[in-house]
Write a protein that binds this DNA or RNA. Structure first.
Lengths: 324, 324
DNA sequence: CGCCCTTGATTTATCGATTAATCAAATCTG
DNA sequence: CAGATTTGATTAATCGATAAATCAAGGGCG
């Protein structure tokens, strides 16, 4: 690896001049600056991040902490965060907290010891990781006071429900994946807010009890709203096995737009998160925090987008307008 | 942050002694070593990785390069790599190559500039990224000469096929997801090797043409083998829509054991990769390369494991033994 | 013409840890 | 007991870049 010294020696100038020329700081004549730039190029010179980090106290690295890297959203978030970070000149170090709360603390600790300049955290269910003296962007849900930026899950739930209401549905089954998840609770809350005045609904949590679709359908339910594509897939399967046509007899709505939604038939209608935008906001927030101390607006809620595909349709004529 | 100097000053010794005491190198009396350790603990001291990196030339960081972070296997691989790396004392920096070959080079370049000590690469389809002067572990497939460690995809394909042969199936439909993928080609090859002497098969690639299941079933096919759970899900859906019972009329086998396999009904039989083991081998390989120059055995093939669930069963009696 | 200011570049200290070289005191040896 | 060795610790250099302080030379001005 070539160093700043090497260039300096080659050109008979001091290393400080090289540093100045390359960084644009200090005073260097355009002529020598150009000579230095050319030589640096020839040598394929790249400054040692390590040396710079030691001197400036900035590593140029951000940490990404997720409760569980196998979270279905992780791939997209990691990709978006990495892309946004790269654009901003940062690298991304990952840390898995293996699902446990203690490990979340350990993961943060590890990243901190590696000298990251900031943290992007998707908090572990029900925890509020406090990280002192380190810029941190929390991606969770607007109802979490610690939230920095996230999708507006409540609004997403409302949109999903409204879309089906607009199609003419009046009786709904809402199925959450995990009742301990604040995100999923917000989604359900959003759905309810849209339905409560115009229709009937019942809530199930699949980690507690999975509903009997036939019974529900017999009771008049024409649409199933879920908090995850994975749950929606299960609903689709159960419906098929029970002989309930989707979307003919039952409309099914997913959440998160996972790849499986395009593989299943009918393709899943779902609600998509703008992960790219969330990542960009998180990174620029961190960047502001790192580079100045100027306060930043907190609690950005990014709108979610409805993706209508084949699993939702108008309710069957026989059921239209029928309640309970 | 407390430094080695601070401890030294506190205890009236030199910083070199502190360094020696903490690292166990050099000569330090047990008495002072203990005093130093205690004080270090009190101060919550952690050596600056950056300073150490600058002096030793080792960053303690590995880079993880994947062609596309949205690859369904990425979450598990990232998690396993992170876990194994952490155990070995390394951090993991991620780099997405956004699906393009040029970006793969750029991603590697970025990591190198950040001073990573080694690279774990899942190569972009059809490329052989050459990384000079940097320990690199390639995770691909045993038929790739550049492969360091990976699942034995051919053997996995063979196992999947054999399981169905053992159940009594004789006529197969093999569906790959992408014919440009060497991994998927190996899986198909493995399936064929098991089938060719005892049964009949036909190959389709879903990026080219998705087969008509009814036509196949009419022609005697009783089992569908795929190279991915995503493709298997599509098959399951098509079968349902065509009124072909799974597994009664048609057995369906997936690959990779994605989360969706447990959500769909019937649950997907599939072939599981031992990602944990692959990651551990990759990391220990890198560690050996980094810490010594001693050559290491290359091309480890990790066996895959069959996971039989509800989507596979004996062929229907009417079809047993029937060919074509 | 002498003084001040600007310009272009150099010196030097520093970030925090590691490590080779060195040194003083204690211990061993024949 | 003198000389050699061991032990425990210190000095000092270094990794590569940055940045404050310094300095020499040239230009402008009254």
């Amino acid at each position: 690896m070539s160093s700043i010294k090497e260039i300096a020696a080659d050109l008979g100038v001091s290393s400080a001049t090289v540093s100045n020329a390359l960084s644009g700081k200090g005073r260097v004549s355009e002529a020598t600056a150009e000579r230095i730039r050319i030589r640096a190029n020839e040598l394929g010179f790249h400054p040692s991040m390590t040396a710079r980090a030691l001197k400036t106290g900035r590593s140029g690295i951000l940490g990404l902490v997720m409760p569980d890297l196998t979270n279905p959203l992780f791939p997209r978030l990691a990709q978006s965060v990495e892309t946004a970070a790269t654009k901003a000149g940062y690298g991304v170090l990952i840390a898995d907290s293996r699902g446990s709360v203690e490990d979340q603390g350990a993961a943060i600790q590890r990243l901190r010891q590696r000298g990251v300049d900031g943290l992007v955290i998707v908090p572990h269910r029900g925890t509020r990781p406090l990280v002192k003296a380190l810029p941190t962007a929390v991606i969770h849900t607007p109802t979490d006071p610690a939230n920095t930026v996230s999708s507006d899950h409540t609004d997403g739930g409302r949109k999903a429900a409204q879309a089906l209401i607009d199609l003419g549905h009046k009786s709904f089954l809402l199925i959450g994946g995990d009742n301990s998840s604040q995100v999923q609770n917000d989604r359900i809350r959003g759905m309810i807010s849209a339905i409560k005045d115009v229709g009937h609904y019942q809530v199930f949590w699949s980690n507690v009890e999975f509903p009997d679709l036939v019974k529900s359908a017999d009771a008049g339910v024409t649409a199933v709203l879920t908090t995850s594509d994975l749950v929606a897939l299960r609903v689709l399967s159960d419906a098929h096995q029970s002989g309930l046509d989707v979307p003919g007899r039952l409309s099914v709505m997913g959440f998160d737009d996972l790849p499986l939604g395009m593989a299943v038939r009918p393709m899943l209608s779902t609600v998509e998160q703008n992960v790219t935008q969330i990542a960009e906001i998180a990174i620029s927030f961190l960047q502001a925090k790192i580079e100045s101390t100027e306060p930043e607006a907190e609690g950005v809620a990014v709108k979610m987008k409805l993706v209508m595909r084949g699993s939702t349709a108008k309710p069957p004529p026989s059921q239209q307008g029928e309640l309970k």
